[in-house]
Design a protein around this nucleic acid. Structure first.
Length: 694
RNA sequence: GGCGAGGUAGCUCAGAUGGUUAGAGCGCAGGAUUCAUAACCCUGAGGUCUCGGGUUCAACUCCCGAUCUCGCUACCA
């Protein structure tokens, strides 16, 4: 390790929902293990996090619940902060992007780039709500999804069919603010010219071939596609105000302001530590406070994130930092993949999750069991699955049976034979010496894995240490020897106790609660460092240990089936919700209906549109002409199967070019609850092409 | 469709620069044992390394193609 200090961040969680096991396994737990390890090594490290509280979804949630955005973020900021604390995620500071410091910091950052002339100003057309007198973010617009017909699709995405949309794609767009039809209006925004910065960014990424393959590959993928300028401001009133003239009603893009949150949080940390001495001014106390963690080349910046954040942390944020000029850039971004739950994607909206705050109500004081399970099964190289059965097995067969059991039998025997006093070592056998050598290698072995972000490997090495202990006891059978060779037993128990002591030290990053308890039982010096665990004399002869209690308890089948049942209920509720028939649309007039000219037509030709997954190019005989229609039905119909098929077609829809093909009209489709499409056709054979549908 | 990451024992995963009988943990079977939360310890069974081709004396490891999973991205009037 050649760096003087470490700035470690964990992704700022978005303040619109509680924290679940996926967050923990993918980001916060590995980050915490890493940081706790560094601290034990005596390294200078700051662990930074906070709530990400801006952006459109929060304003929508607030509106839905009839409260202010501030009330939304206050609620979740507390909930998330408490959950992290409860699980021992040892942030040096857990801040929030609605703080004053953050607004100032983000604002200054933007201003500096603005003054340097980094941004490209661009005027674009965005939907505007004339009644509410404001621009509408994509999320604020609902309309009919052009793909699946869902009437409540958002401007950026249809949640029913999952397709990503542009607000301008929606049929019958409506503002969620006023219910009015929005109009297109020009607006100015500031873009970060990532295209121009590409060579610089490319060089940066290429200098980090040591990054995890998923991270590096994803970055290269973006670079190969060519970076595009990206708007760093939005027309919205919730967020950090854009600090330049002519930017009223605009805020910083949430992805511009969020990563700066790492910097602001570090500032706040030092404001606290320095008893209010303001270290904000770069000139004033340069190098004294927060700045050395962000500006000194000998500081190592590491971002722990989930894979959804790769582009922001590896490309956009570094680009921002480079453009600003006075900051270091991330040295590594160990992103994890995703954790699934019982075979399905974790979903907040579908309540398919294990929430941290609920877990602790049902598994009181079992933080370390979850930490252990999630770490040993972390999605480090690919998506992974969390199952309750696995959780139970890992607790009962590994934590209880191997680790807890070893410690318990050692302590019980020590109390039984020596009233809790550490016995002397008298004479080492050959195998004792080999074992002691083996034990002293564990800290370096585990450290090597942690430093490569291979936490599951590190954890399994930790368990191997406990296994060595169990084997040592089984091989030497002190409970038998006590009858014939008491002196030998002294040495055996001493060595076993040393193993327990070493375990207490090296387990700390992974199982901090258990480490503390074990340390207490052993009456261990709490200031022991990581490297002390290389020694095998942490407990001196005559040292008095305290009463033993079980480190872990078994989890019974009932507790597990209760959790499985809870998820099954959740699934049932979702299915019921999925089957619910959508309520009728607002009343319309006969005149409006009559404007639509829907006819019966027959498909004459059908072929896949090249380089698309969903599109078929159809030639339709409408009775009065023959026309081409492009339709997104390739997933449901094979071209050769639908030649001659009669369909309903909206013939007077304005033509539109799709993938370079002029599409005239729209085929009407019925959609079932699974989102599958089906033609709507006449049932009697004597309906001619061109017949009107009324 | 393009790009990226994956597909290795029942399950979860390791397997530098290609080289004797492909590894670990859990689960399973058998044995041994009783200090310990019927735990620990020992032994064992289990894999045509997704499928085809190719390069090579030799490929899980390199090349080409197919296929499945996940993600990013295009497309849906």
């Amino acid at each position: 390790m050649t760096f003087k200090r470490h700035t470690v961040t964990a992704a700022l969680p978005y303040a619109n929902g509680p924290v679940h096991i996926g967050h923990l396994a993918g980001c916060y737990l590995p980050a915490d293990i890493y940081v706790r390890y560094l601290r034990l090594k005596g390294e200078d490290v700051k662990f930074i996090c906070g709530s990400d509280e801006h952006g459109v979804p929060i304003t929508i949630k607030a509106k839905k619940e009839g409260i202010t955005p501030q009330q939304v973020v206050d609620k979740y900021h507390k909930l998330m902060g408490d959950a992290f604390k409860d699980f021992g995620i040892s942030f040096d500071i857990y801040s929030r992007t609605s703080s004053k410091t953050h607004h100032e910091t983000a604002s200054e950052f933007f201003k500096k780039l603005y003054d340097k002339g980094v941004f490209k100003e661009e005027v674009t057309e965005q939907y505007f709500d004339e009644k509410a007198n404001q621009f509408l973010a994509d999320r604020y617009i609902v309309g009919t999804c052009p793909k699946c017909g869902n009437e409540n699709a958002y401007g950026d995405q249809c949640e029913k069919c999952g397709s990503t949309l542009n607000a301008t794609d929606l049929i019958n767009p409506k503002s969620t603010l006023s219910g009015e039809k929005p109009v297109l209006k020009k607006t100015k925004n500031w873009f970060l010219p990532l295209d121009k910065m590409q060579p610089q960014i490319e060089a940066y990424i290429d200098s980090h071939k040591e990054w995890k393959s998923n991270v590096f590959g994803q970055c290269k993928s973006w670079l190969n596609a060519g970076l595009q300028p990206r708007a760093m401001t939005r027309d919205l009133d919730w967020g950090v105000k854009v600090p330049v003239d002519g930017a009223d009603g605009k805020v910083l893009y949430v992805w511009f302001d969020a990563p700066i949150g790492y910097i602001s949080a570090t500032k706040e940390l030092f404001m606290q530590h320095n008893d209010g001495i303001n270290t904000l001014s770069p000139e004033g106390r340069a190098g004294e406070g927060w700045e050395k963690y962000w500006r000194d080349k000998e500081s190592r910046l590491v971002h722990f994130i989930g894979k959804d954040n790769i582009v922001f942390h590896c490309i956009i944020f570094p680009a921002m930092l480079m453009a600003e000029g006075s900051f270091i850039v991330p040295d590594n971004v160990p992103a994890n993949e995703f954790l699934n739950l019982e075979g399905d994607k974790i979903s907040t909206s579908r309540n398919w999750a294990v929430w941290l705050h609920e877990y602790l109500l049902e598994f009181k004081d079992k933080q370390d069991t979850l930490r252990y399970t999630l770490c040993s099964n972390a999605p480090e190289t690919k998506d992974n699955d969390f199952t309750w059965k696995d959780f139970q097995a890992k607790n009962n067969n590994e934590l209880v049976a191997i680790l807890g059991n070893f410690v318990n039998r050692t302590l019980v025997l020590t109390h039984k034979y020596y009233n809790g006093k550490v016995p002397e070592t008298l004479e080492y056998t050959k195998s004792d010496i080999l074992l002691l050598e083996e034990i002293s290698k564990f800290p370096d072995k585990i450290a090597a894995s942690i430093e490569q972000y291979r936490f599951r490997e590190a954890l399994s090495e930790l368990m191997n240490l406990a296994r060595s202990g169990n084997k040592y006891l089984a091989d030497n059978e002190p409970w038998t020897l006590i009858k014939t060779d008491e002196k030998r037993v002294q040495t055996i128990m001493n060595i076993s106790l040393q193993i327990a002591a070493n375990l207490a030290v090296v387990m700390e990053p992974f199982l901090p609660f258990t480490s503390k308890r074990l340390g207490g039982m052993l009456n261990l010096n709490p200031s022991l460092k990581w490297n002390d665990a290389k020694r095998t004399d942490l407990l001196l002869a005559g040292h008095q240990i305290n009463a033993a209690s079980l480190l872990f308890e078994k989890i019974e089948d009932e507790a597990i089936s209760a959790q499985v049942q809870k998820l099954a209920d959740s699934k049932k509720a979702n299915e019921a919700a999925g089957k619910a028939i959508e309520p009728s649309k607002a009343e319309t007039s006969f005149d409006d209906f009559s404007k639509m000219d829907i006819r019966v037509g027959t498909i004459l030709e059908a072929e896949r549109v090249p380089k698309t997954d969903k599109l078929l190019k159809l030639l339709i005989d409408t009775g009065f002409d023959t026309r081409t229609v492009v339709s997104g039905i390739a997933a449901y119909y094979k071209p050769e199967d639908i030649i001659g098929q009669q369909v309903s077609i909206l013939v007077n829809l304005a033509p539109r070019k799709i993938k370079g093909i002029e599409s005239k009209g729209m085929i009407l489709m019925a959609e079932n609850s699974a989102g599958e499409l089906s033609f709507v056709s006449p049932l009697k054979p004597n309906v001619n092409n061109g017949s009107g549908i009324k």
